[in-house]
Write a protein that binds this DNA or RNA. Structure first.
Lengths: 151, 151
DNA sequence: TTGCGGGACGTTATAAAGTTACTTTTGATT
DNA sequence: AATCAAAAGTAACTTTATAACGTCCCGCAA
């Protein structure tokens, strides 16, 4: 993520938190910044070691900030990667789907109504009430499909 | 899973492995048995401690067996739970979806064509080639929706 | 028969991800 | 200024997973 986009994302996060009456503290802001700056999924301990370049810190520091950011929908957790990524459209709560390229590591966030719909329908058939639908598709992105795999 | 069903599942696994020319060794069979017997998602270290009731064992023993069983489609891994569950229809390779009850812990395995279809369509739009679609829906099952939550 | 090669398994150690429990600080509100 | 809760600091620890290396056993070819 380039500096301009980053600035915008942070400003938007500030605004959203203010609106919601929750506190985007310097720590939380810092973690959000690191996640966004990475531009790809980043692990909690990677965040931690970057924070440690400037100050002492321990795992709970990072996990607490991440918990807050996840609650606010400012970042997403990719369960299959044990890694976190900035949300591309935090304005409204939503359930996203992720396309994860196993080759280059890039991740695309989708908000596809037809996926959400088919999930809802299938769940409803069994009387199941979804609260958090996780959709992470591992595969090969368009770019990487064109060229031979790295390595 | 009751004894009869378990016996059938193991016999089916034997047959499938024979057909495919791969070896369902006693270790692998034992791990499959423990996963199936549990009847709900079970962690690698839970399996390990059950194995240890009968013999010395270390984590790689379990993880190697699980890797094999996953490859053969005899068990599934639930990424959000870090746990494993026996496949309910291992005959053909397939991509499953899981409904995970956050209240009682029960898991339902679906094979819903409309979910698979919408995923494929959405991926195709971006030129993405899916290889392993992960769908795990956290929520409340029909039973638990009726009664107040445990705890 | 010997000896090679590969797959399965044993063993030790360690990495990676996440949590618990408790203390201290901060900051908004009375 | 006193208070109370949310946030952050700190140390220890748990859980999940992998690395690296050695051994055993079996099938097969020389």
């Amino acid at each position: 993520m380039d500096e301009r986009t980053l600035e915008k994302a942070l400003a938007r996060a500030e605004a959203l938190c203010a609106e919601r009456g929750v506190r985007l503290t310097p720590q939380r802001r810092r973690v959000l910044e690191l996640v966004c700056r990475a531009g790809h999924p980043i692990g909690a301990y990677d965040i931690l070691s970057q924070i440690r370049e400037g100050a002492a810190a321990a795992p709970p520091t990072v996990y607490r900030a991440l918990d807050f950011l996840l609650e606010q929908g400012l970042v997403h957790k990719l369960e299959t990667l044990h890694a976190y990524i900035g949300c591309t459209h935090p304005e409204h709560p939503h359930s996203s789907q992720f396309l994860i390229c196993a080759d280059c590591g890039d991740v695309t966030e989708l908000e596809d109504e037809s996926i959400v719909g088919s999930l809802r329908t299938a769940a409803a058939e069994t009387g199941f009430k979804p609260s958090r639908p996780i959709v992470e598709v591992i595969g090969t992105c368009a770019n990487c499909a064109l060229k031979p795999p790295r390595k």
